[in-house]
Design a protein around this nucleic acid. Structure first.
Lengths: 146, 146
DNA sequence: TGCGATTAGATCGTACACGATTTATTTATG
DNA sequence: CATAAATAAATCGTGTACGATCTAATCGCA
């Protein structure tokens, strides 16, 4: 009984790391880590975003993103520039190199789907369930006392 | 279409971190991090395991476990001792303090179940799906070329 | 019996995560 | 117009993850 939540939390923990390990050898030839790839996904969907917007999309704070983005800048993947209209913001935009990488990732998508062993419908359903769970976990519920 | 696997991988990544964030305030009063709690779960299930066995149960290598276990030893939660029958192995066993902590974790289980918003059946089913996915991801499949 | 191969942990370097704090900029208010 | 409150990143410290390598102990087999 009481083991179930432990198993649920542990299964997420283990599955997430397993997924990262599947990505790693596919991303390594591109010189990317998994979190860096996720940032690129966000930028391919919408270029030129402030750090905070990327953070809210990815659920990461500036204390994680700032050094990560600096490494991506050093690798020539992105540009970092202050917003002229609001000097507090740093706008992250794709470099030519960062934009070109997108074309080299379609085989990655295929490999992951294959490794997951799921049909498209199954993947969609499972993703929806996990997203719903994550959304509930992130609501400031009555989880601290009772 | 090609976004699905990205959504699946990202949902796992985000859900795992969300789960850790739910645990954090519950574990902090006990002086535990989430990975340390997972190690304790393994030891509560079976005391006196070598490092490598804990690693295979948790999917962690010695390069992660060794420093983690040293911190737990420093915190007085566990003992580390060479196996007399095989001096290569380091046996990890619970201290009295580490054993006692188990009794203080039942409310944590309840809080997590509540925060997940899942019924027991739903939690079991979702855990099984995620475990099956993780198992497939961990098989050395044809994921590197095609 | 002896020595190369294997195995178990430990060590090292790099890259996240994240709580807490700090700095710089903008906004709101008197 | 001045300044306190709010906001956006950056910084700092601690704790995982993990590839690569190292060391010590055991095993296998001539």
């Amino acid at each position: 009984m009481l083991q179930i939540d432990q198993m649920l939390c542990f299964s997420l923990y283990a599955a997430s790391r397993a997924m990262t390990r599947v990505y790693q050898p596919l991303l390594e030839p591109l010189g990317l880590t998994y979190p860096q790839y996720v940032v690129l996904l966000a930028l391919w969907a919408e270029d030129a975003q402030p750090v905070g917007q990327i953070g809210s999309r990815l659920g990461l704070e500036s204390n994680t993103l700032t050094p990560l983005l600096k490494r991506m800048e050093a690798a020539g993947l992105i540009h970092r520039a202050r917003n002229k209209d609001d000097e507090r913001q740093v706008i992250i935009s794709l470099s030519g190199k960062g934009r070109l990488l997108q074309s080299q990732t379609s085989h990655i998508d295929r490999c992951i789907i294959e490794a997951s062993g799921l049909s498209l419908d199954q993947a969609i359903a499972l993703t929806a369930e996990i997203n719903a769970l994550a959304a509930r976990l992130m609501t400031p519920d009555t989880a601290t006392d009772a």
